[in-house]
């Protein structure tokens, strides 16, 4: 079975947020809910100061703390390692939201996806939007992966800073991209073993 993961090349990312929008369009996420965020932080002092762009998304952890805390088993791990939420089962208790060290889960308080006046031209879309009341997050675009495509954010990224694939399978297994780098997951001390790793 393929195990999926993503490598994010921080050297390449320019913080353009094309991925953020691509993900929104792909998933009809409600207002102000992002499955991927291009975070930033500053370092150094003028004139030796700089900014770093740090795209984040669900890490599809090997050892996902969000799953065992879920009382409904709405949060689960697919065989290929993709961590999903079954919106039809979720009670919206928020436990998984508190369990995720990466703040990657959001509860849908207002499910409207577009204009604040209630005009939802895009609700009747090719993809369904998450319903009100559930927890939601990045799903690794499993619907695209299942048909052999890469996730929306990966396809869109103009610098190819995001590389998606199976760690040990395919033409170029994802692992091969790590050669010569020192890949790092976020917050390793949390023991989550992220499948999204960063190279500098």
């Amino acid at each position: 079975m393929a195990k999926y993961g993503m490598i994010i090349d921080l050297q390449k990312c320019i913080g353009c947020n094309a991925c953020t929008v691509a993900c929104k369009v792909e998933h009809n996420t409600p207002n102000d809910i992002h499955y991927t965020q291009v975070l930033e932080y500053e370092s150094g002092e003028f004139p030796n100061a700089s900014r770093t762009f740090l795209p984040t998304l669900c890490n599809h952890c090997e050892n996902p703390p969000c799953v065992p805390v879920c009382p409904t088993k709405a949060s689960y791990v697919r065989e290929d390692g993709i961590v999903l939420i079954d919106h039809d089962r979720c009670i919206g208790c928020g436990a998984c939201i508190l369990a995720c060290p990466y703040d990657q889960r959001t509860k849908v308080e207002d499910e409207r996806t577009v204009f604040p006046d209630g005009l939802t031209a895009f609700m009747n879309n090719a993809h369904a939007a998450p319903p009100k009341g559930v927890a939601t997050k990045c799903d690794f675009c499993y619907h695209r992966v299942d048909r052999g495509d890469v996730p929306a954010c990966v396809e869109t990224c103009p610098t190819r800073a995001r590389i998606f694939g199976a760690w040990n399978e395919g033409e170029t297994p994802l692992r091969e991209h790590l050669a010569g780098h020192n890949p790092q997951g976020l917050l390793p001390e949390k023991g989550t073993e992220p499948n999204v790793v960063y190279i500098d």
Partner: peptide
């Protein structure tokens, strides 16, 4: 709860989590 009607799934997974 966001979707209390799904409470049934909680009951069905008695041993899964503290909740």
């Amino acid at each position: 709860l966001g979707r209390p009607k799904n409470m049934i799934y909680v009951m069905a997974n008695f041993r899964h989590s503290w909740m």
